[in-house]
Simulated assay, not measured.
Amino acid sequence: MRKPNKYLLILLVTVAGYVLVEYYKPKPLDWKATYENDDKIPFGTQALYELLPGVVQLANVKTVRLPVYNFLTETKPAGRSNYLFICRDLNIDGNDQKQLLAYVRRGNNVFISAYDLPDSLCSVLGFKATVKESGKADSTLRQNFVNPQLTKASGYNFFHDDGRNFLTINNNKQITVLGRNARKEPVFIRFVYGKGQFFIHNLPLAFTNYYVLSPKTSDYAFKALSYLPALPTYWDEYQKQGRFDEDQQSILRYIWSQPALNWAYYLVVFGLIFYALFAGKRTQRIIPVVEPPQNTSLDFVKTVGRLYFQQGDHDNLTRKQIQYFLADIREQYGLTTTVLDNEFAETLARKSSTSLAETDELVRLLRNAQKSVSLSEFDLITLNAAIERFKTGIYGI
């Protein structure tokens, strides 16, 4: 029995070991800020979403996967409620904002924690979301509440935040500052609008898993949300995950949600594009089928012959035959066929290497046919036979 190749075995063991190491090694920590309520990564919000009902006594927390306008016009929440937004950027259009303002005016509450807020909403509520220059960023800047019952002596430090964001109030008496940073700049405000309230907070990172589960900052998010009354609460996920939840994921959405499958998808797409570009050039083009030219001379001669035979025009056919034969003599031997005399017969016999007697007979028949007023069928047959004998003598047919 043939022994296995030891080098091949070493290669297989190495490959298998590499695959096992890659499969079982710990995955690198993902520090991307998603703020999604089903993300367990540091800057997801799963911990807050799951703890919220029990800690803040919001027994009824529902996820919303619709735009603000669609949710408030189509679903129409019954009774008073809270609407909670925790996201990087709050992206709402004019219709969304109009419905959101009407929702609060009727006695409901909206809590927004985002870095980037629409200028139109800020203008209506009387504040600005300001961002300082990068050179003035301070990741050690501490945050704290204004309410003495919520204030922490050492403050709260969210060191992953760059500390450049704060709120500027335009002397609006309806706005109450609920939280400030160490520079005394407002970072958390309340605005009474109609029968309801807007709570504006500009540090959404404080509500993520990392800081909710950290002992030093775990109570900050719940203290901020404690300003909401104990009412049914709607948690917005449309700003972060769009309309579709996990049960409505299509194949492509699942592929795009997985980094490895995402890379594989793009690799296949670009591979097919490159294949189409380069393989298409290398493939031989279709060779068109070219039909060989057909010799229709014989068919033409037969057609003409049948035409003359059916009409019985022997005189015309004989003269045509004489005309074509003399043209062939002129072209082949360079002779003048104007005068068909003995000198012409001798020259033709010499150049065609035929007997003088046979050539004399042919020239005589040609000369008589040219002089005749009308030629009969017999004349045609006699002359044709003489021409065929002359050609047979030349070509040896």
Score class of each variant (00 low, 15 high):
N5S: 14
L8P: 03
L12W: 06
V13D: 05
T14H: 04
A16D: 05
Y18F: 14
Y18G: 13
Y23D: 02
K25S: 11
P26H: 05
P28C: 06
A33G: 03
T34D: 12
K40R: 12
P42L: 11
F43T: 09
T45K: 04
Q46L: 15
A47L: 11
Y49C: 07
L51A: 13
L51Q: 15
P53D: 09
L58G: 11
L58P: 06
K62G: 07
K62N: 11
R65H: 11
P67S: 03
N70C: 00
T73L: 10
T73V: 12
K76N: 12
P77H: 09
P77A: 10
A78R: 14
G79T: 08
N82T: 01
I86G: 04
I86N: 04
I86K: 00
D89M: 07
L90Q: 01
N91M: 12
D93I: 05
N95V: 09
D96W: 05
K98V: 09
A102M: 10
Y103A: 03
R105N: 13
R106L: 06
R106Q: 15
G107C: 06
D116S: 13
S120I: 05
L125F: 01
L125R: 00
G126N: 03
F127K: 05
F127N: 04
S134Y: 13
S134T: 14
K136M: 10
K136A: 15
T140N: 14
V146G: 07
L150A: 08
K152I: 05
S154Q: 12
Y156A: 03
F159L: 04
D161N: 15
N171F: 12
T176F: 07
L178N: 00
R180L: 09
A182M: 11
K184I: 02
F191E: 09
F199A: 05
N202Q: 10
L205R: 13
T208M: 09
N209I: 06
S218C: 12
A221C: 10
K223Y: 12
P232Q: 15
W235L: 05
Y238F: 15
Q239W: 06
R243F: 12
E246G: 07
Q248M: 07
Q249T: 12
S250L: 09
S250Q: 07
L252I: 15
Y254H: 11
N262T: 01
Y266E: 02
V269D: 02
F270N: 06
A276P: 01
K281G: 02
R282Y: 08
Q284D: 10
Q284N: 11
I286V: 10
I287W: 00
V289I: 14
L298T: 08
F300K: 10
V301G: 07
D313L: 13
D315A: 13
R319M: 02
K320V: 09
K320I: 06
Q321F: 09
I322W: 02
I322G: 08
Y324T: 10
D328L: 12
Q332D: 13
T338W: 06
N342W: 01
F344H: 05
R350G: 06
S352N: 04
T359P: 03
D360Q: 15
L362V: 07
L362R: 02
V363Q: 03
R364I: 01
N368M: 07
Q370F: 01
S374M: 12
F378D: 14
L383H: 01
A385R: 11
R389G: 02
R389N: 08
I394A: 05
Y395E: 07
